[in-house]
Design a protein around this nucleic acid. Structure first.
Length: 454
RNA sequence: GUGGUUGUAGCUCAGUUGGUUAGAGCGCUGGAUUGUGGUUCCAGAGGUCGGCGGUUCGAGACCGCUCUUCCACCCCA
């Protein structure tokens, strides 16, 4: 067979040791904070039935699902006329599974399926890859990791507050300057009502969401194109122009929504959440942003999004409240709220800002140089003792040239190299080289151990 | 999915209107230095020019298709 150039599919990546160490640094921080707030881990399969996935993410989402071809002679069972091009109908006949698109919908499925084992409110976190058949770009991959925290079975707005605290702590620990944007779907719905276009709710949210990108004129243009009357559009203008502090925005929007019950409910919810933070300190800026819409249509209350202040890369974290996600799986009236951290984007931002701590890359603390069989035997018990005391250490696996062994230590960023040859064995000491300073000194094993464990 | 863009050594990139044997820096291997990396000097290895097909006496360069990269739209972590 001819040698072929190996490669991975579009939008997927290998993670080499240096990358993995940094990725794990992110995952560990996120996980620790989740646990600190009492959330428990779950995992679900990479594949879900298409019946679970389809129709949950809107029309666009369905297109972005990776579908898995049925096993066996899948074509023989097809009843369609294949000479006519009907690919959408065909896929449902030859594929019944798909790769998960996010972690929220599988979680809803999980909750319904495991109802009997769960005590509510159920607080879980889930860190797994998801797949989207999107066209890759900077900060957009076809396979990427989401870190979800959700609490389901509690209507309390306190959960929203807790999620904001979690976001605040995580981004502080990751040294990312960010802003948390908060809005409420009920406010957006209220606005649609007030301007007399409740049916155009989705078009309105999609257009408003683009304000930052295409500007006011662009939004108005898009709204007109999607069939809104010009009087309705002009009714929206005050919202597009809204600026000032959170309190000022609330006052104005409350007035504008006085005829909409839903809208006022939304305002009240936002107020409640913001009031919590009058007394709770936050490191991150929390901003009421009425132009924040979020595409996923299952959100019904609070919506949250986090953006980096320093790097332009889309959102690093997003989520919100969904009142009826489990409804389609047969469990009514259970409300949940959650957010999802995009580990890959967080990685890209941290890489660009150079905020990864330098020391995390060096894992091994000591390398024993291998001088041969006798020396190796002498070193192995010492090595064992190092490890028993929690010091990451290794011995070069063969008595290669010094240069090679030193280069190995250097490339792995190992801070100390131990040399034990004949003369050291005789004297019962070690020659220890500090790879940072280049200095080298003789000391007893216990001395080195003490130095590395204090 | 629509429109554009990129691909030459492990990495970053040169390569003139199509013309002999495709280059540089970094990295890698060996040596100067048989018990010393990171600095210096010397030498060496490493290429289906993304892939397939076409035009031509001749293609890394031109054309078509395909894969990949990045960008805009759509949408999103």
């Amino acid at each position: 067979m001819a040698a072929q150039k190996p490669s991975v599919p579009k939008g997927t990546r290998d993670f080499s040791p240096v990358e993995m160490v940094k990725r794990n640094f992110i995952f560990d921080i996120i996980k620790d904070v989740f646990k600190r707030f009492g959330y428990l881990p779950i995992e679900t399969p990479s594949m879900e039935k298409l019946s679970t996935l389809m129709g949950k993410y809107g029309e666009e989402g369905d297109k972005l699902l990776f579908k898995v071809l049925n096993s066996g002679d899948y074509l023989s069972k097809v009843k369609l006329d294949l000479t006519k091009a009907e690919s959408t109908k065909l896929t449902s006949e030859i594929s019944e599974k798909g790769l998960r698109y996010d972690l929220t919908v599988p979680f809803a499925r999980y909750v319904v399926q495991h109802l009997n084992e769960i005590t509510f409110p159920f607080k879980r976190f889930q860190i797994q890859p998801v797949w989207r058949a999107d066209r890759p770009q900077r900060g957009r991959y076809r396979e990427f990791y989401q870190c979800d925290v959700d609490v389901i079975g509690s209507n309390s707005l306190f959960n929203e507050v807790e999620l904001i605290q979690i976001i605040d702590q995580i981004f502080k620990k990751l040294s990312i300057n960010s802003v948390i944007k908060l809005n409420n779907r009920k406010i957006l719905l209220g606005i649609a009502e007030v301007i007399g276009e409740p049916d155009k709710f989705i078009d309105i949210t999609v257009a408003i969401d683009k304000l930052e990108k295409i500007g006011e004129a662009g939004v108005i243009d898009q709204l007109l194109k999607s069939g809104l009357g010009s009087s309705s559009v002009s009714g929206l203008e005050p919202i597009l122009k809204l600026t000032g502090s959170n309190k000022e925005k609330l006052t104005i929007i409350k007035e504008a929504l006085e005829d909409s019950k839903t809208g006022l409910k939304g305002v009240e919810e936002v107020e409640t959440i913001l009031n919590y933070f009058e007394t709770l300190p936050l490191n991150t800026e929390l901003e009421l942003d009425l132009t924040l819409a979020r595409g996923l249509n299952y959100y019904t209350g609070a919506i949250i999004e986090v953006k980096s202040k320093d790097v332009e890369i889309g959102s690093l974290c997003g989520g919100g409240r969904y009142d009826d996600l489990t409804g389609v799986f047969g469990l009514k009236d259970v409300s949940g709220v959650g957010v999802s951290f995009g580990a890959d984007r967080i990685y890209d931002v941290m890489e660009q800002l150079e905020v990864f701590p330098k020391e995390i890359v060096a894992s091994t603390k000591v390398l024993f140089v291998n001088f041969g069989e006798k020396e190796e035997k002498y070193c192995l018990p010492l090595l064992q003792k190092m490890r028993d005391n929690g010091v990451n250490s290794e011995i070069f696996p063969e008595s290669a040239k010094m240069k090679k062994q030193m280069t190995y230590a250097n490339n792995k960023n190992i801070p100390y190299v131990v040399l034990v040859g004949e003369s050291e064995m005789e004297k019962g000491i070690l020659t220890v080289k500090n790879m940072t300073s280049g200095e080298q000194s003789e000391m007893k094993f216990e001395e080195l151990l003490l130095k590395l464990t204090k």
